[in-house]
Nucleic acid binder design. Structure first.
Lengths: 166, 166
DNA sequence: TATGAATACTTTAAATATAAAGTATTTTGC
DNA sequence: GCAAAATACTTTATATTTAAAGTATTCATA
């Protein structure tokens, strides 16, 4: 492997500072950890009739009550166009329904149907327990530290993004 | 908001243990942090002629040399079917090419073309520096701690997934 | 050496995701 | 009150993603 690396003159490791390398490393580890977690979630809800994005929408509705399309987009970090598609499929399955608002005809609220509510109530407790087990190797203190550092990193990245845009 | 939450009898917060809630919180924060980072990367390579997955493939080839399709899938945590599509589009743009192997006609290596190598050599140094800046709010020690905790969490989740499968 | 299993890649079908453009409605500013 | 801007959602086009099925080749083994 290192023999191969040495052939890459264009991207020689020595061109990069220790700071840059540790930042790149952090990004790789973050992406892999996220991916593993997402994979475990996908595995967990396999067998139910919903996909991970669909599960996310049901979960948000169960925890927060009826939401507008744009609120779902904001909570789940997805584009409005994407919410349209996911909600379409949930509606086809009879798990949610669009309910028109009286005061603003541009928008409506998405409600869980009885069967949607029943499904999420069936899945979520198991889901919460499995996530607890998945993080078991970390102590309470480590989990707290990790959560705080991730928040701090998120803010740092956002700040840099804003400066980039300006 | 809390008034709304109280209406959710099915998913009452009090049904869940402190451990479960801190694990769920960690997962939410991890997902948001990852998403922010991914978004900043997308913003950064906007303006070049490649998408984030395409950039990932070019980066892997630049750092590791020619790779087989299955090696790319493994490095970038994507399915083989997906690699086919991403490499197809890179090949159409003339940034990589498929080179047949003499010894095994099922497989081939993906090589960077001159223009592909030039593109990644142009992007990567800026990319590395931007990632360094994005993580600037964290001290060296915090970055090390965060990296280690993420690795530990990743292993924990993987272990749980294996037990789930068994 | 013949054949069945395994490997490497592609194709297909369906879901997810975004940007950009389009439609309908409401709000703002004059 | 009316035109312009803003908001909320959908549609379209394209890329990403996977699972499952298909093709070609190589390996294993009997």
């Amino acid at each position: 492997m290192s023999a191969r690396l040495n052939k890459c003159a264009l991207l020689d490791r020595e061109r990069y500072s220790i700071e840059q390398k540790s930042a790149l490393k952090l990004w790789v580890v973050l992406a892999r950890c996220y991916d593993t977690f997402a994979q475990s979630e996908a595995l967990r809800i396999k067998g139910y009739e919903v996909t991970p994005p669909q599960f996310g929408v049901l979960e948000a509705l169960a925890h927060l009550g009826p939401l507008k399309m744009c609120e779902i987009a904001e909570k789940l970090l997805m584009s409005g166009a994407n919410v349209t598609g996911v909600v379409d499929r949930l509606e086809e399955k009879g798990l949610v329904r669009r309910v028109m608002e009286a005061d603003d005809r541009r928008t409506y609220h998405i409600h869980l149907t009885d069967s949607g509510g029943k499904l999420i109530a069936e899945i979520f407790p198991t889901h919460a327990e499995k996530i607890r087990l998945a993080t078991r190797a970390l102590s309470t203190k480590e989990k707290r530290t990790l959560t705080e550092l991730l928040k701090k990193l998120g803010k740092s990245v956002q700040k840099e993004m804003r400066q980039q845009a300006a």
